[in-house]
């Protein structure tokens, strides 16, 4: 069981609610994924076209909403969005995203650290989205982040765990849960993250834009579970043939 800020989750797959073709497909896919935690964004209501209300489709008893600060370009905007999310009845959890570069949507480490400090002070449970930077992860942990959410690859790229080596360092050092977010394009990517010891993964695009999002969601559920089981079972290591030689001088000196 995964525990973040005292709340336990049976599923280690977090879902996203963006980019689906319809609220009905979204709901079916999220149910198939087994996810309990789902991210949601906050936006101004489009008064000319109010459209569907996501709150109506998703059962709040079944899904735990994690509001994000998507769109915030600096710490100030992110803090404002977090406060709005809390006022909306979204609880005091927030997935903190500070993304000044609209092209890559890569997170700003300085703004993220600053906003984390402010939000923690205001009583938020903060899960910051970060680049796979081990020192930043530790600094955020010290600032009171409840988990860290390093990216596998820039968001929406589906490139998998481009940052695998750095993720490994983060996982080995972190005292808070590590949720790999962004870049996970296939169930095998999710499985690998879990095999490495990630506590959870967040998948949105790869499910939302799949040919059959519901089946893809089920595939991710299995991959996450398989990866976690493999991690807990203890993987055998790849052999490093180059090291299999004897010490230069041997051990004959020992008495």
């Amino acid at each position: 069981m995964l525990t973040i800020a005292g709340k336990t989750f049976r599923s280690r797959l977090f879902g996203g609610t963006g980019k689906f073709s319809s609220p009905q497909v979204m709901k079916a896919a999220l149910l198939a994924s087994g996810a309990e935690m789902v991210t949601v964004a906050l936006r101004r209501v489009d008064l000319d076209d109010p459209g569907d209300d996501i709150m109506r489709v998703l059962d709040r008893e079944r899904f735990f909403f994690l509001p994000n600060t998507a769109g915030a370009r600096d710490a100030g905007e992110a803090v404002r969005l977090a406060r709005l999310a809390r006022a909306s009845g979204g609880g005091n959890w927030v997935k903190l995203e500070v993304t000044p570069d609209p092209r890559t949507l890569l997170p700003d480490p300085v703004g993220t650290l600053k906003a984390t400090g402010e939000l923690v002070k205001e009583g938020f449970v903060v899960l910051p989205y970060i680049n796979a930077d081990p020192i930043l992860a530790l600094r955020l942990q010290e600032a009171g982040a409840a988990a860290v959410m390093p990216l596998g690859a820039p968001i929406g790229t589906n490139k998998g765990l481009v940052t695998a080596f750095q993720l490994g360092i983060i996982i080995s050092q972190a005292q808070v849960p590590v949720v790999v977010d962004a870049g996970i394009g296939a169930p095998s990517h999710a499985a690998r993250a879990m095999e490495m010891g990630a506590d959870a993964v967040l998948v949105n695009t790869a499910i939302a834009v799949a040919g059959d999002p519901v089946r893809m969601a089920a595939a991710f559920a299995k991959a996450v579970q398989a990866g976690r089981e493999a991690f807990e079972a203890g993987l055998g290591a790849e052999r490093e043939e180059a090291e299999a030689s004897s010490p230069v001088g041997g051990l004959d000196f020992l008495r």
């Binding site: 490093e240 180059a242 090291e243 299999a244 030689s245 004897s246 010490p247 230069v248 051990l251």
Partner: peptide, 11 residues
């Protein structure tokens, strides 16, 4: 396993 441990430790 002392020998192979020494080899790995050295590497």
């Amino acid at each position: 396993l002392l020998e192979p441990m020494a080899a790995r430790a050295a590497a």
